[in-house]
Design a binder for these strands. Sequence first.
DNA 1: AAGTGCTTCAACCGCCTGCGC
DNA 2: GGCGCAGGCGGTTGAAGCACT
Length: 333
Amino acid sequence: MGRTPCCDKNGLKKGPWTPEEDQKLINYIQKHGHGSWRTLPKNAGLARCGKSCRLRWTNYLRPDIKRGRFSFEEEETIIQLHSILGNKWSAIAARLPGRTDNEIKNYWNTHIRKRLLRMGIDPVTHSPRLDLLDLSTLLSNPNLFNASQFIDISRLLGVETPMNSDLLRFATNSLSSQGEDAINSSQIQDPFQSFQTHQIQEVPPCTTSSAHFFSDSNLMQPNEQAYNLWQANGMPCNFSENLVHATSGVGYDNLEQSVPQFLSDNSNFHLSSNQNYTTVTSVLSTPAGSSPTTQLNSSSTYINSSTEDERDSYCSELFKFQIPDLLDVSEFM
DNA sequence: AAGTGCTTCAACCGCCTGCGC
DNA sequence: GGCGCAGGCGGTTGAAGCACT
């Protein structure tokens, strides 16, 4: 049996607050503090329930509330925090001085969410959803396709990460454009520049999803410290647990066979919650001098590299992107 | 000018959690 | 441990304003 609403009593007013009611509430709290919200309305001479008073105060009348349009930095922060925290609006609001959870929630639902959808980014998972992508947006803004691929890199690596700050900048710049012209690339640092020389073939959407990254263990080195920090914070980072150590002595054919074998043998293989997108992804070593790597099992992202150096360079870049700008998430855990 | 549809956001609702008894 | 209360949270609603025809 549900509890009786606190304001479910005759004579208690609902609906929009009048300036007189606001003034009564402000005067009372400035004089006495809010104390018990349940007893406050009576003491303040208001025909409202305590909940309504608390909401009005915390969301509107509080003196430290910031009004007006959200800044670029605030939008960036909201997107980044949302990618970690989801719809924990109060936790997000705690990182944005002067903004209330209600305001952030409204702003997300009315602005950011819609624009992410137009960009083909799932606002829940922060991963690309090509089925959501508005074609006209894509055509007027070709960089967005690269953006989708870039976000996918994190997904493909099997990590539910916040987006890289460059991407966030890219995304929020797009958001700020209000759907007008294509992004002016001269104003935005292109986070995909390092990928431009490599070929990445997009994988058609599929019904199941998972993502993993295989490479030489030494490619872990550049970000080991960051990786350890992520592990310490309890963030998902599954790729290392399932890493295939493909040494340079392993031949192309052997590698090709080892991946499906590994996948079928490993019951702990990561399955992300991301529906309708890429399945298994692998980036495998190619011994020096061998043919270009088009090494992967079915429904994978194909990455070609003609030399070992090129492949290692590419993989190193992937790992750089795998660890996003670190954010202290421990306080939310 | 009137009608219609869309967007925004303040406010409400119901559920959950923590705490005291 | 069970109960009731208060506060807090996230989802949802609906009135007001705006844009378009």
